[in-house]
């Protein structure tokens, strides 16, 4: 199966390890992975901060770059939700842009969706002998409705001890530019989230979004908690040979 990887601008720039993990994982599962080099950003930051002109331009660019693929996989619930949920609201109904979005958007999958719904696998043959807790992230949970897909994948990882996160469904306080426009509330939410994470006794906090992990992880590191953050793809890519 030929799959286009939508890396997302945040992963591309700051978390290339997540992208490498996705490539490794998908290849292990027999996919032919393509990385369309012209891709940049889904436009979420611009649209959600009130810069619709710039955001719409980036959305148009996205639909052009990813037109013609059977499946586009993104290691980000938030960016996948942007394309699937918010793109349709950006174009005038009946316009060419609307048609382009209607063509591409349904083929965009968050990683766990792609693994379970398209590749029909819950056991990706991973090995990760650590105590892990999972934060579902808002756009994965309430935007894409991923449900327990990521948890099913983690439950099948050999050696992994999955511990439930109390108040998991509560936002961590990242929220894109919210984190800097409302730093006090964002930090207060982050503090409550990190407290819940530490109470689980986990070594690793896992999520399907590096942007949320950047916020939670930045807080965990500042507090010297010793809890590290890992993207779902990185755990799923781990094998006994690692």
């Amino acid at each position: 199966m030929r799959v286009a990887l939508f890396i997302t601008c945040v992963n591309d720039t700051l978390f290339p390890g997540t992208g490498k993990a996705v490539v490794s994982l998908l290849r292990r599962l027999g996919c032919d992975v393509d990385f369309p080099a012209a891709q940049t950003c889904c436009g979420q930051m611009h649209v959600n901060t009130g810069y619709r002109t710039e955001g719409t331009r980036l959305a148009r660019h996205f639909t052009e770059v990813f037109a013609g693929y059977d499946a586009v996989v993104a290691p980000s619930g938030s960016c996948a939700a942007m394309v699937r949920e918010q793109y349709p609201k950006l174009a005038r109904p009946g316009s060419r842009g609307a048609a382009a979005i209607a063509e591409v958007a349904p083929k965009v999958y968050e990683l766990s969706e792609f693994l379970i719904d398209v590749l029909k696998t819950e056991d990706v043959g991973a090995y990760f002998p650590h105590r892990v807790t999972y934060h579902p992230t808002c756009h994965s949970l309430r935007g894409l409705r991923l449900g327990d897909r990521p948890l099913r994948l983690l439950q099948n990882v050999r050696g992994l001890e999955l511990v439930p996160l109390p108040g998991a469904e509560e936002c961590c306080g990242f929220g894109g530019t919210f984190a800097v426009k409302n730093p006090a509330v964002s930090a207060a939410m982050g503090a409550d989230k990190t407290r819940a994470i530490q109470d689980t006794g986990a070594e690793v906090l896992c999520a399907a979004d590096n942007s949320c992990l950047m916020h939670i992880g930045g807080t965990l590191r500042r507090q010297k908690t010793g809890v590290r953050t890992m993207h779902l793809a990185e755990i799923l890519a781990s094998t006994e040979e690692d």
Binding site: P16, F35, G190, T219
Partner: peptide
């Protein structure tokens, strides 16, 4: 304005190479 981030959070480490450069070089 970036102090709004770093007042309470560490900045993530900037990697040696972006994903797209890794892809071109080796990926």
């Amino acid at each position: 304005p970036m102090s709004a981030w770093t007042d309470t959070r560490d900045v993530p480490e900037i990697p040696e190479e972006s994903f797209r450069d890794w892809w071109e070089r080796a990926g």
